[in-house]
């Protein structure tokens, strides 16, 4: 652990030299890959908060807040938490979890509580509050990882080889698609959609709790790479957009809802067969 002393060098000087050497060795280990994951998740979270806030705005009807909107936007959030926790495990160097920063977390919950209380009390606000909410969410959690992404150089290590997803992760990916698709397709019937959502939530909780199971959400998130994350991002975008359209327009018919569900199912089911994580852990 300690370097060899140089002639005439005091032990204190040797220790200082060791400190500099260690810092030089760890400087290239910037957690760029993990920071990218955090930025992506923050964008997702910001979109969620934006739609959540939009549901309580002047644009929304009385039934949208906490009803259909929640049914559409909560399942992706719930599923994503397990997946992202699993993906976290891939990185040898990681940024400290921003949700553990008291200020960021406190701010997030204050905004969430304020919107919830305001909405439940029947209050309304301009639609652009939703944009501000989304922006503030990103600033709270995304600025630091974004700085790391912009500062650190991308790894040029091309020795990682894409491999097909393991069968359990593939099955779980397809089932995630089926669940989210079912929520979309039944979105116009609050009762049915709520039932689908709750039944799916039970399955998700089981899948998150099974930490070491190869079919669990953590392991599935660990196995996912860009194609699967892209498909999940598209699926979440479709669901959030469907929620916004239901709130703000009358164009969402049962055919549109089923079509959105089909798109979600195709995205995730197709991505399940695209080569995923390379064998071995990401060095970033």
């Amino acid at each position: 652990m300690e370097s060899d002393p140089r002639e005439g060098e005091s032990s204190e000087a040797q220790l200082l030299r060791d400190v500099d050497a260690i810092r030089a060795r760890t400087a290239p280990l910037a957690p760029r890959g993990h920071a990218l994951l955090q930025v992506a998740y923050t964008v997702f979270l910001a979109a969620y908060m934006g739609v959540f806030a939009f549901a309580g705005s002047n644009e929304a009807g009385a039934s949208s807040f906490g009803g259909l909107t929640f049914v559409l936007i909560f399942p992706p959030l719930l599923v994503s938490s397990g997946l992202f926790n699993g993906a976290n495990e891939r990185f040898r160097t990681r940024l400290r979890d921003p949700s553990r920063r008291p200020l960021s977390l406190g701010f997030f919950f204050v905004v969430l509580a304020a919107l919830l209380i305001w909405g439940l009390a029947g209050g309304r606000y301009p639609w652009w509050v939703a944009l501000i909410t989304a922006g503030l969410t990103f600033v709270s959690f995304g600025i630091r990882p974004l700085r790391v992404v912009l500062r650190a150089r991308a790894s040029t290590d091309e020795t990682l080889t894409p491999q097909p997803l393991p069968v359990p992760a593939r099955v779980t990916t397809i089932l995630i698609g089926v669940y989210l698709a079912a929520v979309c397709a039944t979105a116009l019937s609050l009762t049915v959609a709520s039932l689908v959502m709750v039944l799916g939530m039970v399955a998700v909780i089981v899948a998150v709790s099974a930490q070491a199971a190869p079919w669990g959400l953590l392991r599935t998130g660990y196995e996912w790479r860009v194609p699967q994350w892209t498909a999940f991002g598209i699926a979440a975008l479709v669901m959030f957009l469907l929620a916004v359209l239901i709130i703000a327009t009358d164009i969402v018919t049962p055919v549109v809802a089923v079509g959105a569900g089909a798109l979600v199912a195709v995205c995730l089911s197709g991505a399940a067969f695209i080569p995923g994580r390379s064998r071995g852990t990401s060095a970033a």
């Binding site: 810092r23 760890t26 040898r92 160097t93 940024l95 400290r96 630091r144």
Partner: peptide, 15 residues
């Protein structure tokens, strides 16, 4: 401690 900068985590092998 020199290896553990502000706000990053290292896994056991990297450390």
């Amino acid at each position: 401690m020199a290896a553990l900068g502000d706000d990053i985590e290292l896994d056991f092998a990297s450390l």
